[in-house]
Design a protein around this nucleic acid. Structure first.
Lengths: 205, 205
DNA sequence: GAGAAACCGTACCGTGAGTACAGTTTTGGA
DNA sequence: TCCAAAACTGTACTCACGGTACGGTTTCTC
């Protein structure tokens, strides 16, 4: 890794924390470069403009999240051969992971971008849309596996159930931040888990 | 209503549409006053600064939403004496109301503020927190009424279920906007409705 | 040791928030 | 109908921020 790449990473790390804390519009390049210890010229050497910064931040964020999901769902699959049990275990792991974040979840970049859409170009917005679609498809695939074994009790659209997880997480992050109570995120994931159980698990007193 | 009050309302209406479309930071006072047809001096005569504008926008937004919930849940209560049925009807009405919005839900002001928190003062943030708490309490009260008649199947925390509705709605709004598909919001509310049914309704094939 | 990569410094432009303050029109009530 | 308050207008600033331009300098790497 060249020195330039390291600087880029440092900038992205600092920028992401700032953006999640106060929004993209309120994050000034000046403060980022001050913390990163370089000049404006240095910044624009690495990023054409603020949009380029957003694009790279987003790529980083999506990659990190993808990796987290890979790990968590692989682990669930390791611990149980039953697709429903594996998913329930993974959701538990996800909840725990979120609960273990030191200062609560810092925020969802996609949601942050969503509420400031006009600040970004089409490429950035297309990137957010695609990653949401990918996550939904991933969850949908898991649900397909479950539904094949356990026919859902209520007639539910599996696409909607898949979407639900992303919605719950994004919504819970907002509530956590608004109420300054990190525990809400964990609890919402667990409530979703209960819903999945109710939908698919066979009757058990 | 004096002329000043009418101007204030006009500014708030224009500002809300702009803020939900592109975020608070990206909404300039200049463009708002241009559309409202008054000068900068005129604007600052009504609002001390941008924070004061946010505060009033928020008050307006919360009041409108409160009224919507009042209507929808009152209507549900009219149509059925059974607390569970009444809630399920209300959720259906809520879903329909959201589906009927011409260009999809314009966005949640609380979420928008959440992701740009540092732009706002403590009073604004306290206002968002309080309205979320109020909405959660309202839903919780309804769930209490239901649980008294229909003991929940899974051991669920009713506070969490109450929170869930807000989370789902906020999350679904983000997904709707990100994917440019307004129907997601309606479908998520209906999926939540299915979950409530599964939690409380007695076994029915 | 040379050339490319990774910066620094300085000076500049446009836009938007916000201030200051004096002047003008509009409005509602005695 | 007049008068005072309310509701503005106009001008002229300030400061911060995004972004550009460009020449110079250091630092790596082959």
């Amino acid at each position: 890794m060249g020195k330039g790449e390291a600087t880029r990473e440092r900038i992205l790390e600092i920028a992401e924390a700032a953006v999640l804390a106060k929004g993209f519009g309120a994050t000034s390049i000046d403060e980022v470069i001050a913390e990163a210890g370089l000049t404006k010229s240095g910044f624009f050497y690495h990023f054409k403009d603020k949009n380029a910064l957003a694009r790279e931040m987003l790529r980083r964020y999506v990659a990190t999240n993808d990796q987290l999901f890979d790990e968590i769902f692989a682990r669930g699959h390791q611990l149980s051969d039953d697709p429903l049990q594996a998913f329930l275990i993974s959701l538990k792991l996800l909840a725990e992971t979120m609960a273990d974040l030191p200062n609560g979840h810092p925020g969802c970049l996609i949601a942050s971008i969503c509420y400031q859409e006009r600040l970004f170009d089409r490429e950035v917005r297309e990137l957010t849309a695609q990653s949401v679609r990918d996550w939904n498809a991933r969850f949908r695939k898991i649900l397909d596996g479950i539904a094949a074994v356990y026919p859902p009790r209520e007639p539910v659209d599996l696409d909607d159930v898949a979407d639900m997880l992303s919605c719950i997480v994004d919504g819970a992050i907002i509530m956590s931040k608004t109420l300054n109570d990190p525990s809400r995120l964990e609890r919402q994931i667990l409530i979703f888990r209960s819903c999945v159980k109710l939908m698919f698990a066979p009757q058990s007193s």
